[in-house]
């Protein structure tokens, strides 16, 4: 079994549009949306939920006002600026609370409760391109890394059960917690970038992260014709680092037009963009297969 994650560093570079097309072109794959914070792949794939699960993770401190003596110890020990005081009344701001239990443990009046949090939901679904595992984290929640790890685990289990040989994942932007979690066990990271100062800057950082995990990196340059000189600079950089270039896509309104019809590009269009995507997928699939375990 092979695992491929589509990433970008910079948001909006085209991860999900590329993942959608690859999902269409891939055979024998399970799809997985690891952007649990702002997932979009479901908008293209219209998944039908087969199983819904609650994601419970972490805890939050809640002060029982009937027991609180107003000593202020909790505010003093909290390192996350999560406790506020108004006229002697202490309260926990759930958006700032890290769930560390320090205030709970050190409260002399034992006035702080510590319930577990329901942070989101995750789904096992079926789509026209095969099974899909995806989630929605509730707004403001943390632990997105744990949810990513759970989703990948579930995807591997289903792949194993159904004899699928590929886990194809849409990743999150950035280089933080969810992206780091999505790297574990991944054979190949496909980084989608664009020829802009942000595109190159963010590609360098996310590719450095992949190198830290010894994950092989392949790069796609989206909207390459917006700035051919910058595209050249990105491609030179990739060659110098040993990243495989798997294609450059022109700036094309068909990407948005396909999205409006809730289709992936290769379903919507059979022009040069779709052809480039098909070639890129063939290269990515071959590259993933060639990686020695």
């Amino acid at each position: 079994m092979r695992e491929i994650v589509i990433i970008s560093g910079k948001g909006g570079a085209g991860k999900t549009s590329v993942t959608g097309a690859f999902a269409h072109l891939a055979e024998n794959a399970i799809l997985c949306d690891l952007d649990v914070d702002a997932p979009d792949l479901h908008l293209l794939l219209d998944p039908e939920h087969r199983a819904e699960n609650e994601f419970w993770s972490g805890f939050e401190a809640v002060i029982d006002q009937d027991v609180c003596t107003g000593c202020g110890n909790c505010m003093e020990v909290c390192r996350f600026d999560a406790i506020t005081e108004t006229d002697g009344r202490y309260e926990v701001n759930p958006l700032q609370c890290e769930g560390c239990k320090v205030c709970v443990t050190l409260c002399p009046a034992e006035a702080i409760e510590f319930p577990q949090k329901h942070c989101g939901d995750w789904y096992v679904s079926s789509t026209r391109f095969g099974p899909m595992v995806h989630a929605q984290l509730y707004p403001g929640e943390e632990n997105s890394g744990r949810l990513v790890t759970e989703l990948k685990q579930k995807a591997r289990e289903i792949a194993e059960e159904q004899g699928l040989d590929l886990v194809l994942c849409d990743g999150a932007p950035g280089i933080g917690c969810p992206v780091i979690s999505s790297m574990a066990g991944t054979d190949l990271a496909v980084a989608v970038t664009e020829p802009t100062p942000s595109g190159l800057h963010d590609l360098k950082r996310v590719a450095e992260l992949c190198e830290g995990f010894r994950t092989k990196v392949a790069v796609l340059v989206n909207k390459w014709d917006i700035n051919p000189a910058m595209t050249g600079e990105i491609e030179d950089y990739c060659r110098s680092r040993g990243y495989t270039l798997v294609g450059r896509f022109p700036h094309d309104r068909a990407v948005v037009d396909a999205m409006l019809e809730r289709k992936v590009i290769t379903e919507y269009d059979d022009g040069p963009l779709a052809e480039t995507l098909k070639q890129a997928w063939a290269d990515v699939a071959a590259l993933a297969k060639s990686i020695k375990k």
């Binding site: 702002a38 707004p139 403001g140 997105s144 999150a172 950035g174 933080g176």
Partner: peptide, 8 residues
């Protein structure tokens, strides 16, 4: 970007 803890 996003709506999880860093964005908030």
């Amino acid at each position: 970007p996003g709506v999880s803890c860093p964005a908030i």
